[in-house]
Amino acid sequence: MLSTKFSPMSKEEVDRKWWEIGDFFRRNSLWMLMYCTGCCAIELPPAMTSAYDMERLGMGPMATPRQADVLLVTGYLSLKTLRRLIYTYEQMSEPKYIVGFGSCTINGGIYHDSHAVINQLNKYIPVDVFVAGCMPNTEAVMNGFVDLMDLIKNKKANGWKDYHERYEWYLANQKAALGEVRVHDEFHE
């Protein structure tokens, strides 16, 4: 017999409900910050324009990290740009997600033996979705976005939480890659 009595939800439950509602909005309105350092960036224009029209998914480009929800790392990252990527990532408002493009972000790709390029992006910042390929074609990119939406729906896009929890680990990796001076301005070195 179902109880007709109103049972107040616990605070956690309320928060969870709100979070689910929030997730609905978030996955349907993913605003991207495109960190176009590598060649994979060339896949974004067809994805945005009339060929694939990512606006269907509610996605759109944004100008600054403050406004964006998802950071697109499109290809290889040199050490210099890594610093800036981390800075940019830390400026984004939570919840925030990262999509890594191409093999360069997964294992260094064709630059795997370069002294100036990092090989594995998710050692430094938490990547939620990788889009494999060198470079991935546009369908793959779109697929990656849909995957991200699914992850958000299933509450599995938790990279930003992971960054909080394992910050020491990330920090250690960042330091190892960048040297003791983690971030510094070339004007002031």
Partner: peptide, 20 residues
């Protein structure tokens, strides 16, 4: 292009309100 849903603007706004 095809374009977003007609209520996309609402989604955007409420998404923003839900963020930290």
């Amino acid at each position: 292009r095809y374009g977003p849903k007609w209520y996309q603007e609402f989604l955007d706004i409420f998404k923003l309100l839900s963020k930290r």
